[in-house]
Computed example of a mutant assay.
Amino acid sequence: MAGRRWRRASPAGRRAPPVLQAWKSPAGGWPVTPHRRTLLASTLALGAAALAAPRPLRAQPAWPDRPVRFVVPFPAGSTPDILARALTPHYGSVFGQPFVVENRAGAGGNIGTDAVAKATDGHTIGLTINGPLATAPALYAHLPYDPVKDLAPISLLARSGQVLVVRPGIPAQDVAGFIAYARERPGRLTYGSVGAGSGGHLAMEDLKARAGIALEHAPYRGFPQAVLDLVAGRIDAMILTVAGILPQVREGQVRALAVTAEARLPQLPEVPTLQEAGLPGAVSYAWNALVAPASMPPGVIARLARETRAALETPEARQATGTAGFEIVASGPEELAAFVAAETARWGGMIERLGIRAD
């Protein structure tokens, strides 16, 4: 072989990987012996295997590598805020970084939820409720975010049945009695809520449609003033979360007629469901969910979902949900997405049918 020089053949001038090139000798050729043929085949096979083998993945940076902003679109002391702060100790322990609650209240939760949707720092998550995820698209003509495109679902957290209550001066002792009383006074009874499209407003509109009664809506800026007016007899009825009215029910200041959950609530075991009261399908809940910007990596979403389920099992979370009258209903991202889609279809259809607007 002395004196022979080697060159690589490359089709159309393009250099291919050396081990896959057809090696040639200068004019005159190189005798191909069985030994050389075996050596060449082995070399080609090893080269092909090396190229086919998966390259080691570049190590991904740990998440989180700095504090996480945990946006709650309601004021400090609200039910979503209490639940978020009950989850943060577990998150901080397992992720090794603090989860800092940031209250961004306003527009029924839309302002804070929009802040989550538009976050680009890779370290923002949010706890939100029915409205911003399921009913806002139908209520607002110019919602600044798209719940489906701009947010990544992580986990459903907790839900609470609501309570139909009436002022003490209403003689009805049950739902049938209330319906009969309202039918005798079409359009003369009023009910309160915390605004158009709120959970209590939509649940009462659903009740009205099923029972065939006419009630006038009186929107308020918040629960406290609405409850005060109900107790004082300035409005006739409300549907609201059990935590928002339980003290007044127990003190006899208002009368609870039914709950909107599928089963009776442990806080009010003597109060029947609307379904038991003769209105099948009249089921609704107030609920909370954990979301992130749509750009959050799927691996981070999956881990957050797992750790959220674990966080909801802690004594802090169980006490927070129990005190607020909520039950834990942890889920995965896919289940939350399906649930929100179903809620959007149900309540969005009603909102459009009734022409309800919030802007």
Rank of each mutant, 00 (worst) to 15 (best):
A2Y: 09
W6C: 03
A12W: 14
Q21M: 06
A27N: 08
W30Y: 12
T33A: 04
T33C: 00
H35R: 15
S42H: 13
P54Y: 09
R55F: 10
A62E: 08
W63G: 04
R66L: 13
T79A: 10
P80V: 11
I82S: 13
L83V: 14
L87G: 00
Y91F: 15
G92S: 10
G96W: 13
V101C: 05
G108L: 00
A117D: 03
K118C: 11
T124C: 13
G126H: 06
T135R: 07
P137S: 08
A141Q: 07
L143G: 00
A152L: 10
I154P: 01
L156Y: 05
A158V: 02
G161W: 03
L164S: 10
Y181G: 05
S193G: 06
A196S: 07
A196W: 11
A203N: 08
A203V: 04
M204Q: 06
K208W: 00
K208S: 01
A211S: 12
G212C: 08
L215G: 03
E216C: 01
H217E: 05
P219V: 04
R221W: 01
G222F: 03
A232I: 12
A232R: 15
A232L: 15
I235E: 03
I239H: 04
V249P: 03
R250C: 09
G252Y: 12
A261Q: 09
R264M: 10
R264T: 02
R264P: 06
P266N: 10
P269R: 00
L274A: 06
E276S: 12
G278P: 07
P280E: 00
V283G: 09
A292D: 06
R309G: 15
A310I: 08
E313H: 02
A317Y: 12
R318G: 10
Q319V: 13
G325L: 00
E327W: 03
A330R: 06
A337D: 10
F339V: 04
F339L: 15
E343Q: 15
G349V: 08
M350I: 15
E352C: 04
